[in-house]
Nucleic acid binder design. Structure first.
Lengths: 188, 188
DNA sequence: GGCCTGTATATCATTCCGATATATAGCAGA
DNA sequence: TCTGCTATATATCGGAATGATATACAGGCC
């Protein structure tokens, strides 16, 4: 029964795709799962050391010319077993924290126009996210159409798109609502 | 320029509504902003001590019969100023972490049926959340129709509803897709 | 020559959660 | 009656995780 930090299973899962370094793991996350998962170096490096001690991963050091040593990690059998066990366990609830909604909740005390600025910034961010997701989708369909994991990647991508679209819709409709002057209540 | 932990501003903001204890703050969060913000006691109590030291809040101790002492905190002028300043500042990006999507991303290695179980549990949770949001909406419309903050509370509620609905749609649609046997690719 | 970017790892302070402890009252059930 | 649960109320502690910072060298840019 694992029930440990999920970061460790994210790392084990990524290493199950292909052996790589902590640096590579970070890059991989940024280019593929960033819309639902992130890790900092400050978490990855100490974690890889712990996983090595626990014999869930194996370290191989590559000396390089000019560049620092590279520690390439690969999954051990124990590591793969721990990962697979975690995979089937019930999903833990994730943390909920939206600083935007926190500010809007107290929005009556914002100076005039500030609320709209917050919403507009959010709208821009969500638009950018949606574009990035569409880009990823097209890239996957073009270059990985036969990949056995494609179906699962598309599944996560689809959730990203639907949620981003909902957020975008909310931002647009709220901006309309708040930009119409003298509309102090939500009367239709 | 604040740029501190947001938890402190959540607490200051709640205390701006009405003086209360750490225990009350937790209860308030659970019954009103829980769909986008949460705090643990392990964060609230030490934080209230720090805020007291920094003279952003003031502590008044109420002795009680049978029950432990109650520390009632109220906002100072400095506390209110710090809160208002934070409110107008640009919103910081929040953490993104979905354990469900992490597991689905590696879904090919799940035992048959497990993926559907994960999705189904998620569907149930989102349905419950949506129901709770609707309940809150009705309660607010019935009992706080004239509250000056109502418009802002509805704004956050609306976002919760739209996002929960999008998640629900995704869960249903994905379950259909994965329950249809022999449907190995996403052909329409 | 100075500066930024990329490669690569590591550490540290700070933030935060979840578990646990303490103490008392009241209520339900065996 | 005894047990255990829930509610009130605060506090501490271990562990997880982030963000900032440090180190070090290569290459490109202006």
């Amino acid at each position: 029964m694992p029930s440990r930090s999920s970061s460790r299973y994210a790392v084990l899962g990524i290493l199950s795709l292909e052996p790589m370094s902590g640096y590579d793991i970070k890059k991989f996350i940024e280019t593929s799962v960033a819309h639902f998962w992130r890790e900092s170096y400050g978490n990855i490096y100490p974690l890889l050391n712990r996983l090595t001690d626990e014999k869930l991963v194996r370290r191989r050091t590559e000396r390089q010319k000019g560049k620092p040593d590279r520690h390439v990690y690969s999954l051990t059998d124990r590591g793969r077993a721990a990962f697979l066990e975690w995979l089937g366990e019930p999903v833990k609830e994730d943390a909920v924290r939206s600083e935007l909604l926190l500010k809007l909740f107290f929005g009556r005390h914002l100076e005039p126009g500030r609320l709209e600025v917050h919403l507009e910034e959010y709208r821009v961010v969500q638009t950018r996210i949606l574009g990035a997701l569409r880009g990823t989708r097209e890239m996957l369909e073009a270059h990985h159409a036969e990949h056995p994991d494609l179906r699962y990647w598309m599944l996560t991508l689809r959730r990203g798109e639907l949620v981003a679209r909902a957020r975008l819709q909310w931002a647009r409709e709220s901006l309309q609502d708040f930009r119409r002057p003298g509309n102090k209540e939500k009367e239709s």
